[in-house]
Design a protein around this nucleic acid. Sequence first.
DNA 1: CTGGTAGCATAAGTTTAAGTTATCCTATAG
DNA 2: CTATAGGATAACTTAAACTTATGCTACCAG
Lengths: 318, 318
Amino acid sequence: MLPDFNRLKVFYYIYDLNSVVAAANELHLSQPAVSQQLQKLEAELKVPLFTRLHKKLVPTAAGEQLFKLVEPFIAKLQDEITHIRQPLDRPAGLLRIGAPREFGKEYLPRFCHEFRCLYPDVMFKLKFKECIPLLTMIREGGLDYALVDVYFKQGELPSFPDIFSIDPVLKEEMVLVCSKDYYQKHIAGDHSYKNLLNKDYMTDEDDPSILTLWFKHHFQKTPENLHVVMTIDSHEALITGLKLGMGLGIATAHLVWEEIQRGEVIPIATAQSNMVNMISLVQLQDKIPTLTEKTFRDFMIAKMKQTEILKRFQCTDS
Amino acid sequence: MLPDFNRLKVFYYIYDLNSVVAAANELHLSQPAVSQQLQKLEAELKVPLFTRLHKKLVPTAAGEQLFKLVEPFIAKLQDEITHIRQPLDRPAGLLRIGAPREFGKEYLPRFCHEFRCLYPDVMFKLKFKECIPLLTMIREGGLDYALVDVYFKQGELPSFPDIFSIDPVLKEEMVLVCSKDYYQKHIAGDHSYKNLLNKDYMTDEDDPSILTLWFKHHFQKTPENLHVVMTIDSHEALITGLKLGMGLGIATAHLVWEEIQRGEVIPIATAQSNMVNMISLVQLQDKIPTLTEKTFRDFMIAKMKQTEILKRFQCTDS
DNA sequence: CTGGTAGCATAAGTTTAAGTTATCCTATAG
DNA sequence: CTATAGGATAACTTAAACTTATGCTACCAG
């Protein structure tokens, strides 16, 4: 059905340079090789592509059409192949990284930018999604790796076979908080399970189970009917609601750190230490990382250790 | 620089079908052949295109990019290659034909349409230009053949080597005419060289020499300073000027045939028979005509013989 | 737990076809 | 006129594409 592709390449050079000899030089081949390839292509297509005019080659209608078809592809290929081809000495090419929105939008662009200052040939494609969609994308080849909030350990993933490698990168502390006003009015120091049960709650739409998990973590009990007054699909908006005093909600500690320090937002502490959410770097188990992937992975982990806000939550065993 | 193109084709099928085995079937190759081609491509690009995941192949970033690059080309190629490929049993494909504007716009579209009724797979590309540009286009491969007003015989072409084959297709009679009014006022039956010398003339800008040629043909003398009152680059407009009585001008006989019959336009006859302009089919000497070209060429010549208006000017020796 | 199978990789051998050198042909330049 | 340039053709060599056979591993059915 389709013709021999290498012959199309040869044809392209012949047409472009209007000469078999020139094409042969360009392709580092001998002149007869090129001549024969052209003839074979013509035999394949059953149509002459050039009229042999003593010395010169003059394209026929078919030749003109074929060139118009092949030329843009070769031009594009020549332009973009260098971005695909991996040099061995330095990171380059496209990195496709997934992350939870709240984490990703805050830190990833910064890491990417700094990395690009060192290695300008690297391009990024960031995807901000939730855990399951990210894992699906990795499995289907849509991402090179992802930072994922994992509540499960390796081997525990629900519907996935054991195809991922999961490396904990940093801990996020998840705290139940509310505004100072709300605290004084409704909590007033009483952090008991019973007192907390009938308060107003806000929850993240993407991950409503975290509220239940918090109770399980701190009281070993799962509340039945929490009074959820607002469901949002943005962690930031949830924090805004918290600060305004709408009620209680789970927040990532480092995102409300400043407010807690200033006393504007009050965390509900219990005898238990804070609930911890592992952010892990997930990738395909068998994937042989390219130089670029490896370099950025190390860079990112190093940067996290440096970053002031993350330092407090950093993973010890990584 | 550029990778092996056939490997790109193999890669395309692997990615598209997400399977080496399926690609092998599609390409009518054995599974190891496909597997090896893929590995060689990856070695060439120095980047893995798929992550080997036990059973499945999962594309990497590079694989995804490469596919996005290759896929539209293959799709387009698959779509359009059939229009380029010449079937052996019937005319098909593109025909690029040149002609003088006046002749071409009148008859060529009709011929093309009728031809397409017989062979719907044929497409046309018509170019209406003057003699020299048409010959240049043929030489450079922009046209398959052209109908050309030739005043010269084979081998006499000014700046062109002997690369064209020129077949006379039909004769056009070129007549010097003016309106009835102008004739009665200024000519009044006196067709002598001397009388004609100081009249008003109109001439076609594209081919001003034809006036001189007319005099040479009829009187064996070349006039020095004819009084040219209007120069136009449209034969039709020239005829309009003639009819309005602006003066004398050379017209293609069949285009003013009706007017001559009705006596509205008067031809200046001399002892000499009318000057004849050969319309010839010109193509590259060495061009091996495709079935399509041959068929349309014969069709066109046959149609010309049938067409009423052309019948009178038809070439005897063709 | 144990074949059986599906999907891909690897190894080794065969064959195709791509490439090479050498020669020829013809138009054009000098 | 000879020299040269551009391409075609022929015959030979070699590289690489393709094949068969086999191995590996995950997954499924019994």
